[in-house]
Design a protein around this nucleic acid. Structure first.
Lengths: 347, 347
DNA sequence: TCAATATACTGAAACGTTACAGATTGCCAA
DNA sequence: TTGGCAATCTGTAACGTTTCAGTATATTGA
């Protein structure tokens, strides 16, 4: 439509974005040669290579993504698959920042692929794979037997999971050691003389639910404390639900004197529930919570916190996917982040 | 490499992803006809059109993005440009969810393009435009005279800004009415008898800083209250800085008895600072804060809040960009969200 | 000297799509 | 009967890239 020149070789009109053809014309070489020179192919003369790369840099040549993608199938895209309802708030931004940090000096773009509660979590993954929309995928809310991981493994598409699976299949992951977290939390509370502990769990069904629950249980028997069951909520529940049920729990005769919470937002609600029941944090009950931002300290100074960095998770996950795409052994791309310890106010 | 058939037309081997050629083969039509039939071109017979579309649906045909993009230049991508350091935390996830909500049933993908403190904010935008990586762009942290908006307007690439500009140029935007927010907050505090008010401002230089400050000032003179200057912080400062400087402020003789805060995270720090100074919220000072999640209520029941939905902002921004891409008048794609009113605890 | 071989480069084809410029058919007016 | 003209359909080229199968030139071994 808006092309001016009718000559086959209109590269002299300098306004359009430079392509290989432009470079070929400028250097007097063939398109093939230019292409290979740019990617350091061995059969290109050293001087030619330098010359081409110099010119390319000078005129700001950038390979056309669509061209590459069409020809090679390589999208230079990695996709972060997110649940638009359940994912904790700040979680998402941090993980995204972590990912972008890593892919910043690569040709990769990050696309966010959402799915909602009503959908099968496999849907977005299937979409990505079937349409070949990404070279690598990052998923969260990982389950012990995760159909998404299984699916991608079958299709041979590189991915990394936030959280581990337990299927006897090997794939890259990053996980926070929630077993250790729950254990440390329990030991900390026990060290303060707390004996009857309750746990605000991760969402049932996710792998780190198991880890957390196990860490909690093992440490309980280790320190000889007992569990006050609190199975009616998880951190996936709404603020109001958590608050109400905590209040109910705390009004009971056999209420806990120590609580471990798996997420900051839930902790806010739990504390509100405690206070609704007329009890006081630090006196009637102590609470150790995981948090991902440094804000919980400000909320109640009596809170104890363990920090989990989602930014780190994002970086690690991105590194893992890129590594797999780059041909590394998936088994070597697994990482576990250890809790730094329980911090009191003004740690 | 892994292609089996050597015949030119290997579409009979059903395993590969279907293309127009596959459809052409199956229907016995030409590729061109199929292409046009799928997009309801007028010169295709009604029955043929239906037939092609039926077959396409049956075998799950999906146009190859790279093919379309290479041929037409249309990327079917919209980019959200984010500052990886300053953007408030939950802000980002909500805005992303809002955007994905709108583009869910379109062919669009969302890519997140980050930039860091050290970079010129124009960099990522320039990159997107120069490489033609997106059909539309969403930016935030909008300034009255915003070089990014000017740049994209010049280049003719559709975009929407979160927040307004003030350059006499018309473009789509979505904004929260921060003038109204600050005004309502002031009136609310004045209604409670507060007379010496301080403002925790948005980042200096952004448009909504001006709006907020103006709304604050106008309402102050309207109700006859006075301002206690608090220019040493904005919501871009760290939690620690805000906390310390609030404590300093509150220890002064002429401390404010009412505070308006532009963001939830800052509010947490401000409250901590107030309490560091030995004062009590609700007694010595009242505070009205904007928040985007419903969590501030839980923090201190004495807080007053005004809700701003970033999810809504995301949706509106996406709608605006898509509208502009679709040929709508940019001037008609501007929206302003009105604060719902000041809510006390248990509103 | 000749062939064999290494070195440095090149054109053509293909990835999947759309736009352009036809091509084929049937029907109608003259 | 013929020319004209809709109504449908089609082949070719092009977008920018990489791969395949070369070609041309210089270098080597005998």
């Amino acid at each position: 439509m808006d092309r001016r020149a009718k000559e086959k070789d209109d590269d002299t009109s300098a306004k359009e974005r430079p392509t290989l053809k432009t470079l070929a014309f400028m250097t007097g070489l063939g398109v093939t040669t230019v292409s290979r020179a740019l990617k350091d192919a061995p059969e290109i003369g050293a001087e030619t290579r330098r010359r081409v790369q110099l010119v390319a840099k000078q005129i700001g040549y950038r390979p056309n993504r669509a061209g590459v993608r069409l020809r090679t199938g390589k999208t230079n895209v990695i996709s972060l698959v997110l649940n638009t309802e359940h994912e904790l708030m700040s979680f998402v931004s941090d993980i995204i920042y972590g990912v972008t940090e890593v892919i910043a000096d690569t040709p990769y773009h990050l696309i966010v692929t959402p799915y909602s509660r009503s959908q099968d979590p496999l849907d977005p993954v299937r979409y990505l794979v079937e349409t070949g929309s990404a070279d690598g995928v990052i998923i969260s809310r990982t389950q012990p037997n995760d159909p998404r991981a299984r699916y991608m493994l079958e299709r041979g598409i590189p991915f990394a999971t936030h959280g581990r699976t337990d299927m006897g299949l090997v794939h890259p992951y990053h996980d926070f050691d929630n077993y250790a977290f729950a254990g440390e939390a329990v030991r900390h509370l026990a060290g303060m003389g707390r004996r009857r502990l309750a746990l605000v769990t991760p969402p049932v069904g996710l792998t780190y639910y198991d880890h957390t629950v196990n860490g909690f249980a093992d440490a309980l028997s280790e320190v000889g404390a007992s569990e006050v069951p609190f199975n009616t909520v998880s951190i996936d529940h709404t603020i109001e639900q958590i608050r109400m049920r905590t209040a109910q729990l705390m009004r009971r005769e056999d209420r806990p004197d120590g609580i471990v919470s798996s997420a900051a937002a839930a902790t806010l609600a739990v504390v509100a529930g405690i206070e609704d029941a007329g009890l006081k944090l630090g006196r009637d009950v102590d609470l150790v919570s995981k948090q991902s931002s440094e804000l919980l300290h400000l909320f109640r100074r009596e809170l104890f916190v363990v920090n989990e960095s989602f930014r780190l998770a994002g970086s690690e996950l991105a590194r893992a996917v890129l590594g797999w795409i780059g041909g590394m052994d998936p088994g070597s791309l697994q990482s576990l982040s250890t809790p730094g310890g329980v911090l009191p106010y003004r740690g």
